[in-house]
Design a protein around this nucleic acid. Structure first.
Length: 519
RNA sequence: CGGGGCGUAGCUCAGCCUGGUAGAGCGCUUGCUUUGGGAGCAAGAAGUCGGAGGUUCAAAUCCUCUCGCCCCGACCA
């Protein structure tokens, strides 16, 4: 039992913070609401980036970079957009500093036009695309950028909501509304596939209700995940922006039939919030649990020895093991200079195998060290294993431990094992979600059960008023109107398409939506 | 931004009520003994008590302000 981590059941928010700390993922910064992403946490982000980026490239997108600063006037051009983001903008009003006469500093020269720090980049990109697009032959534009953005939040939580966060934002422009819609849906599919196969987070694809829609979008689609406490996490969004931004920024083109039209744009993004999702989906009371595909350290090898001869023999054995598994020590001689007590080998995926040769730490301490950092596989090699030509392999998600034949461990074994762990984690998360998804036909029943968490499949009359009333009274919102026709619940599959009655308003409903409290 | 809680060594906290000049455990460093699920002994290093004012001969302790974190509300990826 890890003593530095609160139990999930006792204090979930504290558990979350404890896991981040013990997992060495991030620290608070001197500035409120911002975080320092530590190397291990950033390693998770890099794996997210590289695997998502490959998917973007495979769908025809290219990367570019747009500026951090946006003229304040740009934001004003799209009415809904201003309304949505005005309150969360950081504003730059001065350049330079000068002494304030009291030993400190004060801002010096006021700017002619204030700049905002991007909360998202639709406006500056809209302005740019207006210059890029002349003809239908210039379309589509399929651009993505990896960037940081700033939103002045009142309440923050590490990874889930920080004032500055890292994300990617795709911005595309199209000739027709159909194309824009297809792009919006296609990227949502990419996110869903990514969440499930890479992060092992099961998600529900759906559309946001009007009140949850992105400021300036015609339609917002999302993937919604359920965390272990039963709360929902919006894990990715894809927006069909229609012609709202193209009209605001005058992105016009000459059509195939010699007319002039505004382009149809989309935007879509996921952020470092996904790391919070990974933590809250998979980790346990012992600490962080990472899916193999996003584990910066895939394997930690702990040697066991008493005498110097044993240390030598066991180390040699472990190094052979690393090589068999496909790991390459950065130094061809097999000796990493950076930290001889923590030998690092690199796998083709960019992930690492660490051979933990720290003296003075006993094996159990090393077990805990790597366990708390979520390392999926731990291998223990000692004189007995060497003798028997075996390796003790421990799987982090289940903490199962088994002696395996040295000869059976190779890169093929590693791929297969990673894939199995990955699949098991997804299944486990999906089963948990199913067990906490409920059909619900009565508002009082809903209110009574909401505190226990979960997704509630309830009829909705489609009005803002009903949703607002529920939000007001219960803090739960419509997470999405799912695309699928039915969802698995604790009591079996439930159809979302059968007409019924909204239990709150008593009005007719076309189908069920997901209600939940959300992060 | 409103309500509640909390800031003392890297971490967890005691000391504060009743002012007298800083402690414990863990961690860290070094050495020896150890090493198959959080080791033992010994010797060390480490805190302007979140910050700024004030009261006082004297402030971690009392007062005021401020900053940060956590929880709850209004907003959001």
């Amino acid at each position: 039992m890890a003593t530095n981590i609160s139990a999930r059941g006792k204090d979930y928010p504290q558990w979350y913070l404890d896991v981040i700390k013990a997992g060495d993922l991030a620290d608070h910064s001197p500035v409120r609401g911002c975080m320092v992403i530590k190397p291990h946490g950033y390693g998770v982000w890099e794996l997210i980036q590289s695997q998502l980026d490959a998917r973007f490239k495979a769908t025809g997108h290219v990367n570019a970079y747009f500026p951090l600063f946006i003229p304040m006037s740009f934001l004003a051009k799209e009415a809904k957009h201003v309304e949505g983001f005005a309150m969360e903008c950081a504003v730059v009003t001065h350049s330079g500093l000068e002494p304030d006469g009291k030993g400190g500093l004060k801002p010096k020269g006021p700017l002619e036009e204030a700049l905002i720090v991007r909360p998202t980049s639709e406006t500056v990109i809209g302005h740019t695309y207006a210059q890029w697009v002349q003809s239908w032959r210039d379309l589509p534009i399929l651009v993505n950028q990896w960037a940081n953005v700033v939103r002045w939040e009142m309440r923050t939580r590490l990874f889930l909501r920080t004032m500055e966060f890292l994300w990617q934002e795709g911005h595309t422009a199209h000739e027709t509304p159909e194309e824009a819609e297809a792009e919006t849906r296609r990227m949502l599919d990419v996110y869903a596939e990514f969440a499930e196969s890479v992060l092992a987070i099961p998600v529900v694809k759906g559309e946001k209700s009007e009140s949850e829609r992105f400021a300036g979008a015609d339609r917002t689609y999302c993937i919604e995940a359920m965390m272990q406490d039963g709360k929902a996490l919006q894990s990715g969004t894809s927006h069909n922006l229609g012609q709202n931004f193209s009209k605001a920024f005058d992105i016009k083109f000459q059509t195939r039939d010699q007319k002039v039209s505004h382009v149809w744009t989309t935007s879509w993004g996921v952020s470092t919030r996904l790391i919070g999702g990974v933590i809250m989906t998979h980790s346990d009371d012992e600490g962080l649990v990472l899916p193999p595909k996003v584990a910066p350290v895939l394997i930690a090898i702990v040697p066991i020895y008493k005498k110097p001869e044993e240390r030598e023999a066991v180390t040699q054995y472990a190094k052979e093991l690393v090589t068999r598994l496909g790991g390459q020590f950065t130094d061809p001689a097999g000796n990493l200079v950076a930290n001889p007590e923590m030998l690092t080998a690199t796998l083709p995926t960019g992930q690492r195998i660490i051979l933990d040769l720290r003296d003075g730490l006993r094996p159990p301490e090393k077990y805990f060290h790597w366990e708390q950092r979520g390392v999926p596989l731990r291998m223990e090699v000692g004189p007995r294993d060497l003798e028997a030509k075996k390796v003790m392999v421990v799987e982090r998600p289940t903490r199962t431990k088994a002696p395996l034949e040295f000869a059976s461990l190779d890169s093929a074994w590693l791929s297969a094992t990673s894939a199995r762990l990955q699949a098991d984690m997804l299944k486990r998360a999906r089963d948990l979600r199913t067990s906490r998804t409920f059909r619900c036909d009565s508002y009082s029943d809903f209110q009574a059960r909401l505190d226990a968490g979960g997704f509630f499949l309830m009829h909705w009359d489609g009005t803002n008023e009903t949703e607002a009333k529920i939000k007001e009274e219960t803090k739960a919102t419509i997470r999405c109107i799912p695309f699928v026709d039915q969802l698995d619940t604790a009591d079996g599959p439930v159809s979302l398409r059968e007409p019924g009655t909204d239990p709150v308003s008593g009005r007719p409903s076309q189908g069920r939506v997901i209600y939940a409290r959300a992060y």
